[in-house]
Design a protein around this nucleic acid. Structure first.
Length: 651
DNA sequence: CTAGGGTTAG
């Protein structure tokens, strides 16, 4: 206290500057400003006004920055620079550039400190013509030899997608200049990785005079983006140092490539290495748990987040909503959602999608209405989520209405995903002709996924002619994809056209197309147990099979009849009766029954759609075992309780 | 002036 009293108010310019730099609130800053004005001390001092402006930007008060600028009767170059930087830092590229123009047209020409932020703003506005003009202006002012300016130029071109221009900037940089500018190397390296040219990036990486963590991070990201997991992991393991970005890159990359188990493991390893995650690392880890349906891991990450002061907001909040909903805990998702203070369009999408996959269409619609009341502007993703709610509950008219309002009222251009949703919506409801007509009227060529949606609808509603058409297109679009063959073969089997089914099977074997195996997994006390169809590799295999047999016997007493048609769909299994009993979800269920306490809920995650037979067995099992069974298939959730399923047998 | 980042159809 004493010390402050003695030095206050400062009696030198330097004293004021350090006071300004240490200010921790806007209020404090304004008091200092008032003092400067009142004491008529240094009020026209360039360093003091510049420092005031920079500090107001640091404290995120752009209005105050602007008024400081306007108050200045004769703005100095450094005040201009500080303002342009402040505006650029706060994503106000248009304002930044208009002040840059003001400076440019005054007698004060922008210097090496103003250009970089103007270039960044031009990139943010994605205005190529502006970018080229700025480049020319920098050359004319002979500033393009400055390393700060050159790096910004290259970065601007990368962000605008003009990789060639960025490479030109790089190539035309004198060697002596390049040697000491890691940042320029990194910018180009990153540009190459973003463009998918990892080979060239690697070459550049190998000859770099000096590398920073960012160089490694870029290359790791490039490899992950390409799906080259092994190479990425190898590079990552060989890094001389890793920071939070490195770890986040790995968690996200592994998860996006389907290796969620390893993604969560990476997150744990990061913590073991004493690196503190940020909100995005936490969100990425939660996302990996969500994709796996691993509730126990998800809960652990949630605990970490709470213990480390991450608010249930923004990316973390959204990821939590998504994690709980994809792990079967829709009520928990809803609780987190209600607790959140700010919800953006992604948060609403995650919540609506949650209600949709759990079959609560009313909740999904209500949520959509609430979102509009909260004045959050719907985007294409939200419509996808609401459409999904319609698909999973057979609300055909409502879905078509939504689709039209999206296009005509909200002026949102539908994507292939939306078209697929509509075809799925019509198809599932048995309105196949309409679905096909809809496809013909689409402005774009249907893709593999869309034909797949039509095909499954044909199978459910046993329309062989249309199914053949769909199958032809599936095979045309992806000859190597096993799905097309499996679909086709299944269809012939269902129609008892054994010869045709056999023909397809032979073609499949000739071209050595593999079928992706079905698996299910269940988490029991922090351990995950994965089962394949007909799996006998589990140490408790005998017990599991016995428990399953017993269950089937008791289920039959309750009127359960094995549905052999499902077996026919499993073209690789020769022995019908056996295979029916060995679907992976049944094994997971039996294991769940013997390894959890009576009455405890059983959560199973499956990578394919649940078959009709397993679905009926699950229903009966929930009744005779008095358990809630929560099954996530690759589309949605089935909550089995007292003999009924939440999907209402519509899936 | 550099690296990573939450939701989304079959």
């Amino acid at each position: 206290m004493n010390r402050i009293a003695r030095d206050f108010p400062p009696n030198s310019e330097a004293g004021f500057i350090s006071l300004i730099q240490s200010s921790q609130s806007l209020h404090h800053l304004k008091q200092i400003h008032a003092l400067v004005l009142r004491l008529h001390l240094f009020f026209s001092s360039i360093p003091i006004s510049t420092q005031l402006l920079s500090s107001s930007s640091r404290l995120h008060s752009i209005p105050f920055s602007l008024s400081l600028f306007r108050l200045s009767p004769c703005p100095s170059p450094s005040l201009f620079n500080a303002l342009i930087r402040a505006l650029s830092d706060h994503s106000l590229p248009f304002l930044a550039l208009s002040h840059f123009a003001l400076m440019f047209n005054s007698s004060l020409r922008p210097g090496r400190l103003a250009f970089p932020f103007a270039l960044k703003s031009a990139a943010a506005l994605s205005q190529p013509s502006l970018a080229f003009s700025l480049h020319a202006a920098a050359s004319k002012a002979s500033l393009d030899l400055d390393s700060f300016v050159r790096t910004s130029l290259a970065d601007m071109y990368v962000k605008l997608g003009f990789l060639d221009c960025a490479l030109n900037v790089f190539d035309e940089t004198p060697a002596w200049h390049l040697a000491g500018n890691v940042l320029l190397w990194n910018v180009v390296l990153n540009g190459l990785c973003r463009d998918g040219d990892v080979e060239r990036a690697r070459e550049l990486f190998d000859v770099m005079p000096e590398r920073s963590v960012a160089s490694w991070n870029s290359l790791v990201h490039g490899l992950l983006k390409r799906g080259d997991l092994d190479a990425a992991v190898e590079l990552f393991e060989g890094m001389p140092e890793r920071n939070v970005v490195s770890w986040t890159t790995m968690v996200v990359g592994l998860s996006r490539n389907g290796d969620n188990q390893r993604a969560v493991w990476m997150f744990d390893r990061m913590l073991e290495n004493g690196v503190r995650g940020n909100e995005f690392t936490v969100a990425a880890a939660l996302s990996a748990c969500a994709r796996m349906g691993a509730l126990e891991s998800g809960l652990r990450v949630h605990e970490y987040a709470l213990a480390n002061g991450f608010r249930e907001n923004g990316a973390v909040g959204t990821a939590l909503v998504d994690m709980y909903s994809k792990c079967g805990k829709i009520e928990c998702a809803s609780e987190v959602f209600d607790r959140m203070e700010r919800r953006d369009v992604l948060t609403w999408t995650a919540m609506i999608m949650g209600w949709a996959i759990h079959g609560h269409w009313r909740k999904a619609f209500q949520c959509f209405e609430d979102m509009k009341c909260a004045r959050v502007k719907p985007d294409d993703g939200v419509f996808l989520a609401v459409l999904m709610a319609c698909v999973h509950s057979g609300k055909v008219e409502k879905g078509l209405e939504l689709f039209d309002s999206m296009r005509f009222y909200y002026q949102i251009e539908p994507t292939m995903k939306h078209y697929t949703c509509i075809v799925d919506l019509l198809g599932r409801a048995g309105r196949l002709e309409e679905a096909l007509e809809f496809m013909k009227a689409m402005p774009v060529e249907p893709d593999f996924v869309l034909w797949g949606a039509l095909f499954s609808a044909c199978r459910v509603h046993k329309n062989i002619e249309m199914a053949e058409l769909a199958a032809e297109n599936l095979l045309r679009l992806k000859p190597s994809h096993s799905g097309g063959y499996v679909f086709l073969s299944n269809m012939y089997s269902s129609a008892r056209r054994w010869d045709d089914a056999e023909k397809v099977r032979t073609t499949m074997k000739d071209q050595s197309v593999g079928k992706s195996p079905g698996w299910s997994y269940i988490e029991v006390r922090g351990q995950t147990h994965c089962f394949y169809a007909g799996d006998q590799s589990h140490p408790q295999s005998n017990e599991i099979h016995n428990r399953l047999e017993e269950l089937v016997l008791r289920a039959k007493e309750q009127g359960y009849e094995p549905d052999t048609e499902c077996v026919l769909h499993d073209i690789e299994d020769e022995d019908k009766e056996d295979s029916l009993e060995c679907h992976s979800e049944k094994l997971a269920l039996a294991f769940g029954l013997i390894s959890t306490a009576n009455g405890e809920e059983i959560r199973i995650v499956k990578n394919l759609r649940v078959c009709g037979d397993c679905h009926s067995l699950m229903k009966v099992a929930s009744l005779i075992c008095g358990r809630e069974i929560i099954l996530r298939d690759n589309k949605r959730f089935h909550h089995f309780n007292s003999g009924v399923c939440s999907c209402g047998d519509y899936w």
